[in-house]
Write a protein that binds this DNA or RNA. Structure first.
Lengths: 159, 159
DNA sequence: CCTCCTATTGACTTATTTTGACCTTGCCGT
DNA sequence: ACGGCAAGGTCAAAATAAGTCAATAGGAGG
């Protein structure tokens, strides 16, 4: 029971293998034609299989000479540590713990100082919004923090 | 298959590379002739690829010895550059605009692909929360997105 | 069976490029 | 000064292609 979505997704993955490149460009219309589906199915494939959280970046352009470009970011140098990041963060994490974790990751060169800064800014921003705008209780902020941190770290750890 | 607009845009960029100058002068008619298009296509290229937003200023003169001068903006220090970024993002920014901006920044090697991925994940996360958890209207999400993006980019610019 | 999640579809929307008709400006010769 | 010609500018239509959204269908697990 291979769904069309899976077939198309697999096909796109083979394109990456072929090119030895971390980037491919395709035409939504042509792809849809190739697989005999409506064009919007391609969007579904991309949404469900090639999201940033899964280590892909997508750029596209409408209109004449439109295209869809998919970039795959592979980080082969992620060590064991990075692989169980998800457990490490857990379902809730305090501000302090989060920062300690980031510091450790930077020490081990799993993330760069800039990346650490970037993540800290994002976390702080979310925290401020949670507090000032939505008046969230501390535990809720801890779970949202964990969610964001997990998404970010896992996206970096995509093999 | 590149669009003519992209080809011409790329050509203009090489002119900057060649001269090592931050300013080039060209003739609309000649350029159009060189690429076999109508002159107004050049205006389109300039409007869409060499706007102030993208770091360029354009002067031109009609009549007798008409010309088009394209100047590339330079920033003397981080603060100035950070300010420019803040203006670019503004007080509200759509998802599309944000991603396009990030793509441009990556193209110019101002941020790395990894950093771009991190930012996109953070933006998507905030958007998701805004929509699903807090049921924010689109405009509010645009302002929150701008806020986060500004904070991130400015912090990176300072680094 | 029922329910939830994943897929499929298509009508409607938005964005980009290309083209051409018509407008404005300014040097130059008379 | 004036009028013509040689730039460049504007605008909108046509062509092209992608995105969104919501209704519907299918399938796996309880």
């Amino acid at each position: 029971m291979n769904s069309l979505t899976k077939v198309i997704g697999d096909y796109i993955v083979t394109l990456f293998d072929d090119t030895e490149n971390s980037e491919i460009v395709l035409s939504r219309k042509d792809l849809a034609q190739k697989f005999g589906c409506v064009p919007s199915q391609i969007n579904y494939v991309l949404r469900s299989r090639f999201s940033p959280e899964q280590g892909f970046l997508i750029q596209s352009q409408r209109g004449g000479h439109g295209f869809i470009r998919i970039m795959q970011l592979r980080f082969s140098d992620c060590d064991e540590y990075a692989e169980h990041l998800e457990e490490l963060v857990g379902s809730a994490i305090s501000d302090q713990e989060a920062r300690r974790l980031l510091a450790r990751l930077q020490e081990r060169a799993i993330i760069t100082p800039r990346e650490r800064l970037l993540v800290e800014v994002a976390l702080r921003n979310q925290d401020e919004n949670g507090r000032a705008l939505f008046d969230l209780p501390p535990y809720k902020r801890d779970t949202l923090r964990a969610e964001l941190l997990r998404k970010i770290l896992v996206s970096l750890a995509m093999y």
